[in-house]
Design a protein around this nucleic acid. Structure first.
Length: 346
DNA sequence: TCGAATGATTGCCA
DNA sequence: TGGCAATCATTCGA
């Protein structure tokens, strides 16, 4: 088809290539409409899928996009062929007429050439219209496909849970770093910008109606505490197994239970063994104290359920969080026991 | 079917 | 450039 197309254009004497036609050709090629038959448009569709925040979920839309693109492609090729056939037929017809006329009057080859040129120009302008309308159709399809608002899907329950857990365990400074965003995006199977959107929406909506989110905050706080307790228990088991003769100092010295701050991320990314090494092993001084502490943590959160203390301590009078948004700051591990914990103790 | 919830977009600001 | 606030558009549950 392309070669035929070229042959038609090639007949247009030495006309400079029409920039508009070139643009259309390039676009049709890029969109996989006029390119090689196989996999036509799949690259464009994949790119569109990626731009749309592609997850496994949009494979349906992806195939839908491909199907529609194939349809456009088929129509385009059918029409193009029709035009070319008509052009050839008409040219032959005119040539025959001229040949007939040549019996009655002399016709120069130049005149024939001129006629053929006129016919080809006419048909090529029709072809241009076809290309233009095909491009428009592709653009409409693409914009519909890319317009996420049209086919918004709520995040999965699991994803929302992960995001909420992070949000409420970083309530004093709910501004995940780029790294944290990437990590969350990976876990939730969404894009980093979706994570940013989510946190943007969450911060605003939380601030606007803290009361409404109180219950949710308590829920996640309790959940976080339970996770912490389990992790501690696992750590204890581990330490018992590893050092059964560890002397019990009986000290009540500080045990840094990561019940806020980056705890969630730590929990998520570390398994029992590494958790012990990174978070507990270094701090455990007394197993008994540890258990007591862990239990205290849990009950502390339970208390919170009765007396909602998950108040916006992170918020300052200006309606912003105390900790200024630090785009570059990594999820601060030195947030330490964090606002949530310290809040409860007061 | 309607209102609430929610993800995305836009415009503005520091 | 990231965040905020307002808003849009869609989904979801009663």
């Amino acid at each position: 088809v392309t070669t035929k197309c070229l042959s038609i254009r090639g007949a247009q004497e030495e006309d400079p290539p029409d920039p508009q036609l070139m643009r259309l050709d390039n676009m049709l090629l890029a969109e996989g409409v006029s390119g090689p038959e196989k996999g036509g448009g799949s690259a464009a569709a994949a790119a569109a899928a990626a731009a749309a925040g592609g997850g496994a979920d949009n494979s349906i839309e992806h195939s839908d996009y491909r199907a529609k693109l194939t349809q456009i492609r088929q129509i385009y090729h059918t029409e193009l062929e029709k035009y070319e056939q008509a052009c050839n037929e008409f040219t032959t017809h005119v040539m025959n007429l001229l040949r007939e006329q040549s019996r009655t009057r002399p016709i120069s080859p130049k005149e024939i050439e001129r006629m053929v040129g006129i016919i080809h120009r006419k048909f090529s302008s029709i072809q241009m219209q076809l290309k233009q309308s095909t491009c428009e159709a592709v653009m409409i399809l693409r914009s519909r496909f890319l317009d996420a608002r049209r086919k918004r899907r709520n995040f999965s329950k699991q994803a929302t849970e992960i995001l909420n857990e992070y949000f409420y365990s970083h309530l004093s400074n709910p501004y995940p770093s780029e790294e944290a965003k990437e990590e969350l995006a990976k876990k939730c199977s969404i894009t980093v910008s979706q994570v940013s959107n989510w946190f943007g929406n969450k911060r605003i909506r939380y601030k606007k109606n803290i009361g409404k989110f109180q219950e949710e905050a308590n829920l996640y706080a309790a959940k976080t505490a339970v996770t912490a307790t389990h992790a501690v228990a696992a750590a204890i088991q581990n330490s018992q197994a590893n050092s059964p003769t560890t002397p019990n100092s009986g000290s009540s010295a500080s045990f840094n239970l990561p019940n806020s701050g980056d705890m969630f991320m730590s929990m998520q990314s570390l398994n029992g063994a590494s958790y012990q090494g990174a978070q507990v092993g270094a701090n455990v001084q007394s197993q008994g104290d540890t258990i007591r502490h862990a239990i205290n943590q849990t009950t502390g959160y339970s208390d919170r359920l009765r007396h909602p203390l998950y108040s916006p301590h992170g918020l300052n009078g200006n309606g912003g969080w105390h900790d200024a948004p630090t785009p570059t700051s990594v999820t601060s591990p030195n947030e330490g026991p964090g606002s949530v914990h310290s809040d409860t103790s007061n």
